[in-house]
Structures are given as C-alpha cells and as structure tokens.
C-alpha cells in the first residue's frame, strides 16, 4: 500500500509543490490539503510546508495555528501520527503548542538563504529514523525568523529526552544549542528550519533531504496495517 502524505496549504504557503514532488519522487502518494478543511482525511503523514502562512501577520504561525485544519492535525498528532513542519511549518507547530519553544529573528539581522550542514543529533524521530546519530546532511536554509529559543527548563528537558533532532554544524542564526530541529515527547511531531524538500536531487547540490523525507515515509509506513 502506498503511503499517503497530506501537505497543508495555508494562504501564503509557497513550498507545498516542492514537498509534493519530493515525496512523489520517493514513491509516496502526496496530496494538498487546504487549511480551511475540517479534516485531514485518511492520510498517513502530514507535512506543513514553508512559506508565509497568513502573510506571517502578527508573528509567523500565529494566525495559522487557528486555521480549521489545525484541530484535525492536533488530533492526528495526539494519536501518534507523524507530522513534520518545515521552516514556516515549524513556526506554525511551535505557535500551536505541538512543539516547544519559538523561532525568533536571526541574530545577525539578516535573511539567510544558503546551504547548511546539519548533524543528526537524534535518530529517534519521525524524520530521522533512517539516519544515524552523527550523520551530516546538507540542506538549504531560507529564513529570517529561524533563531530557535526556549526557556532553560525546556532546553534541559529537550536534552534529557533526546528531543534535539538536528543541530547546525556552523550556527548561522544564533539558535540556542545550535538547534535546527526538535521533536515532540512522542517523537512523531518534528519541526526543522532547513528545507529537506529542496535537497532531493543531486542537481540541486544535495539529495540528503531524501534520507529525511524517506524516514518520514518509513515512520508512516510502519503504522500501516500489514
């Protein structure tokens, strides 16, 4: 059975087609879900793509978290379903309380658009289960508000529970503890600022993103009835 992934489109999302193409390239069935939908339907995994949901008005993700589909996504995540937020999608997940912390403006006051080397810090997550701790992957970053921050208590909890999933080799934005991606306590919800979907073909400079999105499909597939 083919794994079916729902890619959520908010007004202002702009990476949804890249995500769909990358997932299809890995053999998955990917479909777009509209933010105003009442349900996520029968998908096996969900991706919140990058962009500027609701224009990033107020704060990135602040309005998107109240989109009707978020209720169904929260239920899906609570039931253990894999949910990945990429870039703006990560910001939406933190605003929705599905992931801890927040993304503040880059410490260097610059919008960053460059390849970034990342170290897999935990292979126990929906997005890294097919990688090994210490693996280095190269993915593009493309953000202004990508500087991850959280309280000292939250950081301690993330470390103690092995929930820091990816770290920057060379911290580009001031993120606390070099964090590029974190996961939920259940390890099924993952947020990251870099874009795996833009690194799925050697022609684009890296196909390391396939390992991460492949992990997501493996996680989703393992939940399907045999």
């Amino acid at each position: 059975m083919t794994t079916k992934v729902g890619v959520v489109v908010f007004p202002g999302s702009n990476c949804e087609h890249d995500v769909v193409e990358a997932l299809q390239g890995l053999g998955a069935d990917a479909e777009l879900l509209w933010h105003g939908d009442a349900t996520v339907g029968d998908v096996d995994a969900i991706v919140l793509p990058g962009g500027f949901a609701h224009g990033d008005y107020l704060r990135p993700g602040a309005i998107a978290r109240f989109s009707p589909i978020m209720v169904s996504i929260t239920d899906f995540a609570a039931a253990g379903g894999p949910v990945v937020g990429i870039c703006n999608g990560f910001q939406v997940l933190t605003e929705a309380g599905l992931l801890p912390g927040a993304l503040q403006k880059n410490s260097g006051s610059r919008f960053l658009c460059a390849p970034a080397d990342l170290i897999v810090a935990s292979a126990q997550s929906a997005l890294t289960c097919a990688t090994n701790v210490g693996d280095v992957v190269r993915l593009p970053i493309n953000h202004f508000e990508g500087n991850y921050t959280c309280s000292a208590e939250t950081l301690q909890e993330l470390r103690a529970e092995d929930r820091i999933v990816l770290r920057y080799v060379s911290n580009p934005n001031g993120s606390i503890d070099d964090i590029a991606g974190v996961c939920s306590a259940g390890r099924n919800v993952v947020g990251l600022m870099p874009h795996p979907e833009r690194a799925c073909d050697p022609l684009l400079g890296s196909d390391d993103g396939r390992r991460l999105l492949g992990s997501l499909l493996a996680t989703a597939g393992s939940r399907l009835p045999a």
Partner: peptide, 13 residues
C-alpha cells in the same frame, strides 16, 4: 514587547 534577551534586529538597526 520582546522579552529581555530576545534578539531585536530592528531595534539594533
């Protein structure tokens, strides 16, 4: 307001 310690590139600029 941004809390103390939170980066404020606009303010700095």
């Amino acid at each position: 307001r941004l809390r103390p310690g939170i980066a404020d590139p606009q303010g700095a600029t």
